[in-house]
Amino acid sequence: MSVEIRTEGIGVALGGVEVLSDVGVFFRRGERTALVGPNGGGKTTLVRILLGLLPADRGRIRCVGDDGREVRPPRLGYLPQRSSLAPEAPVSGLDLVVLSMTPGPGFSGTASACEEARCALARAGLDPALWTRPVGRLSGGQRQRVLLARALAGSPPFLVLDEPDTALDAEGLKTLRRIVAEEIGRGHGVITVTHDSDAMGGADRIWRIDRTAAEVPVG
């Protein structure tokens, strides 16, 4: 089933400053959507609201199916702009990806979750020799690949990328562009916060976010 994510009248103030006002945008499966705009315009804030990491002061998010009826919100795979993994973290990349699928105290990874994690790490281009190495002993680019694998694990219907071209090397960007094409081919949606709408191989829809939102013609 196709799912469309819609924001309606989203508004939020941070530190007494209005960051977003009456933002209404939509995201569809099978589309590459770019969020562009100036620094401080609210792109990442909007993404944080979509992910449920930040509550909006006003407005709502609706998810609708093909028939226009509201459906359960889909899971969003998220690649942050910068690695949030602590350098001293003892957990391995493999365990981190498995934990993202089946979190909980006293966790013991199931065979299927471990296999899914291995597939995600392979897609993200991390050398198998590094899968069980503690993330604190990985380079910044390698940790970013672990986060990419975590975003891909479980095949979420939407992938959210926050300025991915700032933290990946040339080979990592090549891998990510391939993954974006694969995700679109699977009928998934890809949402990218970027200053260059062509960075991930182009966009099917572009929203300019600068406190408010406006759709920008593609091409």
Results as ranks from 00 to 15, higher is better:
V3F: 00
E4R: 14
G9V: 03
I10E: 03
L14Y: 05
A34Y: 12
V36S: 11
V36Q: 10
P38M: 10
G41Y: 13
T45E: 08
R48E: 13
P55V: 08
R58L: 10
R58I: 03
R58H: 12
G59V: 11
R60E: 13
G68I: 08
E70T: 10
V71G: 09
V71Y: 05
R72S: 15
S84N: 15
S84W: 15
E88H: 13
A89W: 12
S92R: 06
D95T: 06
L96M: 15
L96C: 08
L96Q: 05
L99T: 13
P105Y: 05
G109Q: 00
T110H: 04
C114I: 13
C119Y: 09
R123Q: 15
G125S: 11
L126T: 10
T132Y: 04
L138M: 11
Q142T: 02
R143N: 02
Q144G: 02
V146A: 00
A149G: 07
R150I: 03
S155T: 12
F158H: 02
D162H: 09
E163Y: 06
D165K: 00
A170E: 13
K174G: 12
K174T: 14
L176Y: 01
R177D: 05
R177Q: 12
A181Y: 00
E182M: 01
I184T: 10
G185S: 01
G187F: 08
T192I: 09
S197I: 02
R205Q: 13
